[in-house]
């Protein structure tokens, strides 16, 4: 009796978490994959099995290709930029400067604000003619520009906002990691005459690598996951110049009601993210020093 109970206890303890995971993560993921192999049912017509047809048609879907390309640019642009900025800000607010608390707060502020509010704020910054950016550039004689309305600058404008929003959040992780580094390391290096940059390159940066790996994977996931600002600011336009994959999924599923095709794109996103995570772990994990 006692032995049965001990065998069951761990499973009972795992049960609540397992139920939640299964109900809201594993089951939907499997269902998404299954529904991506069927046609979307319409009216009296039942769903028909179509195999990989949805996946094949993606390649000839210009909007999907545009969204994929945009998302790649978006990720490759915002992730390194926000990581570099986060590291820089963390090093600044970790040093002994005056007004440290105020700086930390202002760097972290964008993270606290809801994305919708932030997007609306930046909408005003980008307003052609009298927006903050145009007014500022106007001081130097630049002409007004429709930042969000021009296919050339729409995606870039969203990326600037994303970097601004994400860097402050990642800074917190870097700040925590920096404070784990013993100050005597810096003193030992100072005795040898190591300059700031040398010390950062040879000591601080390598010791931050575990944090960088963690932040990078999260940043890539976020770059596919966060689309609130797209909805508020550009709705993917003009001419799909700022459409990101998840925004396209949303359109396909809830505006065109082609849920099966949306499922197929969702599966593609998941595969891309999984591949990215594997690659990052595979390449970086060997070089990362864990304490």
């Amino acid at each position: 009796m006692y032995r049965i109970r001990t065998a069951v206890t761990p499973w009972l303890l795992l049960l609540p978490a397992a139920v939640l995971l299964a109900a809201f993560t594993h089951f939907p993921a499997v269902m998404t994959f299954i529904s991506s192999t069927f046609q979307t049912p319409r009216g009296k017509r039942p769903a028909k099995f179509v195999g990989m047809d949805h996946y094949a048609s993606m390649l000839s879907d210009p909007v999907f290709v545009a969204a994929l390309k945009n998302n790649a640019i978006y990720a490759l642009g915002t992730v390194p930029a926000s990581i570099a900025l986060a590291m820089l800000m963390a090093v600044i607010v970790n040093s002994a400067i005056k007004g440290k608390a105020l700086l930390r707060m202002s760097f972290f502020l964008p993270t606290v604000l809801p994305m919708i509010a932030v997007a609306n704020m930046w909408l005003f910054f980008y307003t052609p003619g009298y927006g903050l950016i145009d007014q500022f550039l106007g001081l130097f004689g630049f002409h007004g520009r429709n930042w969000l309305g021009d296919p050339e600058t729409a995606l870039g404008s969203l990326m600037v906002l994303a970097v601004w929003k994400e860097a402050g959040f990642f800074m917190i992780f870097y700040l925590a990691a920096l404070q784990q580094i013993s100050p005597s390391l810096g003193e030992a290096a100072a005795l040898e005459g190591a300059g700031r940059w040398y010390f950062f390159r040879r000591v601080t940066f390598p010791l931050l690598m575990p944090t960088t790996l963690f932040v990078m994977i999260n940043a890539f996931i976020n770059s596919f996951r966060l689309i609130d600002h797209v909805i508020v600011m550009t709705r993917g336009g003009p001419d799909n110049a700022s459409t990101l994959l998840l925004y396209y999924v949303y359109n396909v599923a809830f505006r065109y009601w082609d849920t099966a095709y949306a499922s197929a794109i969702t599966v593609v996103i998941l595969i891309v993210l999984a591949l990215l995570a594997f690659i990052q772990f595979g390449i970086l994990d060997r070089k990362v020093h864990y304490k």
Partner: peptide
């Protein structure tokens, strides 16, 4: 003078070894 210009070496209580 800055520490590096004082012709000295130092051993710290925590050893200050670079863990990586």
């Amino acid at each position: 003078a800055p520490p590096a210009r004082r012709d000295l070496a130092m051993v710290f209580q925590s050893y200050a070894l670079f863990p990586h």
